[in-house]
Design a protein around this nucleic acid. Structure first.
Length: 270
DNA sequence: AAAAGCCCCTGGATGC
DNA sequence: TGCATCCAGGGGCTTT
């Protein structure tokens, strides 16, 4: 599910509200992708300072240590003063004096991992290889183009890999490539400077627009207040195989790249 | 070093 | 209604 926009929408939904809270209890459900890596009771009494985002990870800063939280494919967070008793897919509760942060994740590809600091081995393993943040000033066009040029694989695969630019998942990769007019199968090394600039701009614009629309809700995603996103309603190509291109009416095509579906317009994208 | 496949897991949609 | 098959917003790990 959650690509950068969904993670950012989630973050914005509770970052201010939980800042300054004191942890009163931690509840663990079924195992997630990785163990918490700390005795849950050890977190009680600690204070939540802030919530940051790096790629598709949320970083919950405590007055000692931090939690690395990933939503995997089907995860979503809720935050409220009172939540119902945990359901079958509620696998992590962080109970604080300002409310409970709850991870619901049917497929359990998500994770919550505690580390003492960002230099800790687990933090380095999970965050160390991440590329540039696409929103904000750090997304440098020269570095982006350089990153594309050293890869022979399909440009869509490079976007998904996350070591050049982070946060672009399966929906927004297809959408950004459509907006930039680039074929998803094009080897990244063959992308010219002007086209790299178009893709650079498209990635930023698509992700920013999706954040504005509250993300995309296909199945599981909702924000911390349980509300859906609406970007999926304005997707140009994702999930629209066989339907007419919104620009030229040519039927949208679907193909497989690395076990994932890709959607594109054969006329608008070269 | 880079690229391609393989899994982790559950549930919804589709087809027989 | 029942059962099998396929597919799904990710990404670390293993194998080529």
């Amino acid at each position: 599910m959650p690509e950068l926009p969904e993670v950012e929408v989630t973050r914005r939904g509770f970052a201010e509200r939980i800042a300054g809270a004191r942890i009163d209890a931690v509840r663990i459900g079924k195992p997630l992708r990785w163990a918490l890596m700390v005795e849950p009771g050890a977190l009680i009494g600690r204070q939540v300072l802030a919530v940051r985002r790096r790629g598709k990870y949320l970083l919950v800063d405590l007055n000692r240590g931090l939690l690395l939280l990933h939503l995997g494919m089907s995860g979503s967070l809720r935050f409220d003063a009172v939540l119902p008793s945990p359901g079958a897919h509620d696998h992590f509760d962080l109970v604080t004096d300002r409310g409970t942060l709850r991870l619901n994740d049917p497929r359990r590809f998500g994770a919550v991992v505690y580390v003492e600091d960002e230099a800790a081995p687990w933090a380095v393993k999970l965050l160390g290889g991440l590329g540039m943040e696409p929103l904000g000033d750090a997304f440098d066009l020269d570095a982006f183009h350089a990153g594309l040029r050293k890869r022979r694989t399909a440009v869509k695969q490079v976007l998904l890999a996350g070591d050049v630019v982070v946060g672009v998942g399966n929906i927004y990769a297809s959408e950004a490539l459509f907006q930039a007019g680039i074929r998803p199968t094009l080897p990244a090394e063959r992308i010219s400077r002007p086209r790299a600039a178009r893709l650079h701009a498209a990635v930023r614009e698509i992700l920013a627009r999706a954040v504005e629309k509250g993300g995309s809700t296909l199945r599981d995603f909702s924000n911390v207040d349980g509300q859906n996103g609406y970007f999926q309603l304005e997707a140009a190509v994702y999930g629209r195989a066989g339907e007419p291109c919104r620009v030229c009416a040519t039927p949208i095509r679907q193909l497989r790249q690395g076990q994932r579906s890709t959607y594109y317009c054969p006329k608008c994208q070269k």
